[in-house]
Computed example of a mutant assay.
Amino acid sequence: MQKLNFPTYSFRFKSSENKISIFDSIRKKFVILQPEEWVRQHCVQYLMEVKGYPKSLINVEKELIVNGLKKRYDIVIYNSNGSIHLIVECKSPTITVNQNTFDQIAQYNLVLNASYLMVTNGLNHYYCQMDFKNERYQFLKDIPKYSKQSQ
């Protein structure tokens, strides 16, 4: 798989029926290794190892309803009170992150109300903090590290 703009992590792989799978430590199962999954797994490790978010507050690939349509978010990090701290939208490294990507995560956030948004294709990462009062987001250089006080 392609080298991404994340630290190097060790992953567990298995091969069956000519398909490679990667172990997802959050879902506790092997999942087919697609380019977007490669980005998602790196991002999960980054959030735990570099940013310090506890595994227990991370959720991966769950369904939500947006405007009556079934959608799936990539990664959500909860606050300890159950509210949502961060939504992450992962794209394949071959996908250019553009306004459509931000529109997609903004739509998800209409339902989820996260304080922070992250969009990544594994090569480029974008971070935003929500300004709910003015109904917009402000770009950041990075997302904050985990802190029990801010949770």
Rank of each mutant, 00 (worst) to 15 (best):
V97Q: 04
Q104A: 07
I87D: 07
F13L: 04
T101L: 00
N100Y: 06
N109M: 07
I143K: 03
S147N: 03
S15V: 00
R72K: 13
V76R: 05
D142Q: 06
N5I: 03
R27M: 10
C90R: 06
S56T: 15
N134A: 14
K148R: 09
Y127T: 12
M130H: 08
N98E: 11
Y46Q: 09
N121G: 12
R40N: 08
H42K: 07
S25C: 15
K145E: 07
K29R: 12
Y137K: 04
I20A: 01
D24Q: 08
D103E: 14
I77P: 07
L33M: 12
I22T: 14
F132Y: 10
G122M: 08
L140T: 15
M1E: 11
Y78D: 11
S115E: 10
M130D: 10
E61N: 05
Y127N: 06
L64A: 14
S147I: 12
L117A: 05
Q34T: 10
D103G: 11
C43M: 07
Y108F: 06
V97I: 03
D74Y: 03
Y146H: 06
V88W: 09
K62S: 12
E37P: 00
V60T: 05
S147C: 02
E36G: 01
V76I: 05
I58M: 04
Q138N: 11
F11P: 03
K70V: 07
M48V: 02
G68R: 00
S92A: 11
I95L: 10
M130L: 09
M48N: 07
S16H: 05
K148S: 08
F13G: 00
K19V: 00
K55Y: 10
Y146F: 10
S92T: 12
S16R: 03
L86R: 04
E135I: 02
N134T: 15
I32V: 15
K133W: 09
R40L: 09
S25H: 15
S16Q: 14
M118W: 02
L47S: 07
C90T: 12
L110W: 10
K51P: 01
K133N: 15
V39G: 08
H125Y: 04
S25R: 11
V44S: 05
N121F: 03
Q149W: 06
E89I: 05
C90H: 09
K28M: 04
G122P: 03
L110H: 01
N121W: 01
F30Q: 03
I143Y: 08
V44A: 08
K51V: 01
I105D: 14
K145R: 11
E135R: 10
I65F: 11
L69F: 15
E63R: 14
P35C: 04
V50L: 15
E36V: 00
T96G: 07
I84Q: 09
M130I: 11
L64F: 14
L140D: 05
Y137L: 01
I84V: 13
E61G: 13
E49F: 07
K28E: 13
Y126C: 02
N59V: 12
G52K: 02
S21I: 00
N121P: 05
I105C: 14
E63W: 02
R27Y: 03
K62A: 07
G68A: 09
Y53H: 06
N113G: 14
